[in-house]
Design a protein around this nucleic acid. Sequence first.
DNA 1: TCTGGGGTCCTAGGACCC
DNA 2: TCTGGGGTCCTAGGACCC
Length: 424
Amino acid sequence: MTDIFALVDCNSFYVSCERIFRPDLNKKPVGVLSNNDGCIVALSKELKNLGIKRGTPAFRISHLIKKHHITLFSSNYTLYGDISARIMNVLSMFTPDLEIYSIDEAFLSFKGMEHFDLEKYAKEIKDIVWKWVGVPVSIGIGETKTLAKIANHIAKKYDKFGGIFNLVNHPQKKLVLSYVKVSDIWGIGNKYAEKLNRFGILNASQFIDCDEDFIEKEMTIVGLKTLKELKGVSCIVLDDYVKSKKQIISSKSFGKPISDFDDLMQAISSYLEIALEKLRKQHSVAGQMMIFLTTNPFKNSSQYANYVSASLEIPSAYSPGFIQIGRRLLKSIYKEGYQYKKVGVMISDIQKEEEAELDFFKTAYIDDKHKNIMDVFDKINRINGRNTIFYSSSGTDKKWAMRREFLSKRYTTNWKELPIVKAE
DNA sequence: TCTGGGGTCCTAGGACCC
DNA sequence: TCTGGGGTCCTAGGACCC
């Protein structure tokens, strides 16, 4: 049976989520901002057409907002996460093998379906997602994940394909690949694209003709896998189970500069709470933690950045233990007199709770009481909403909280903010 | 005034061991 | 002039992804 992969990718996902509840913004330039309303991270086609690029700081386009009637939103991850879950739910009805690759992308296995009308099937998927959730998607189909990615890229780029492109047994595969820049191949980023360009390799068709030893030498076995995938040899398998995280990071820039130790400690404590809740959700414990802080590198003021890590005697997921160590670590690298822009925490050396318990010398948690406390803690927040209860070390004044000036409502996760349909 | 956040994998090099 | 060889483990850094 031939392996066939379909990649379903939402178009301008965050923008599309906002548009579900603001249909008046269809066909208009819309953007979604990063945390702190800093950079533009998602752009509608109309905004892209104004020459604005992903990653542009919002303040650089402030003069264009009025002129072109641009609408900007603060990122509303609660909303996007909820819409994403709905889409994945719909997609899972079309295949038993689904890999949720990111918040807005999923690989579907079409294994053994080479005699089906794959484009027609993809069109059905696209239409149903649009009808039931209200988000437009593009679908690319290929014998490998990398080819499905390329097909998706083409489906998105050229309107004439109606958002669907199939590379399986394509009679002009080489010609199609010659239209794809090497930097648009999945797995080839800026650095390797530049390197390949220096060798005169500019598009996917030229890349596929390269000598395998040469590619492995210049791009390690990662590059070699990409090459083989383009040739139709599947090297990247479909992972249809949820993988546990091997490290969890929580960090955010502050809404305004912070220099006080206690404020920084509040942020560290809050981020640790977020990271550890994620850790417990995947039933794991961590044996290592790291914290870091930095001033604003874009400012001319005096700069300082540092990080420090510590190992835990016993791997755990008990928040107070981590917060205690976090305080000690912060003390060791904190310097007075600097304007800090960001702090963050990282927990690593992660293993499953059961596995840790099997190890006689590394019993997870100090005792069951700690585990019970955290279970109850998480349950309360799960039922009543995040931050219903939290540690006092995380503070209540939160001077450092991020800016979110253009936040849309919690249309799908809060009863009080449900959209209202008015009959005229 | 204003420049994101969260991940993975691979490799090279150092420390250490026999 | 010579100053072994091989293995493992860990870490930092680089590359990529969304």
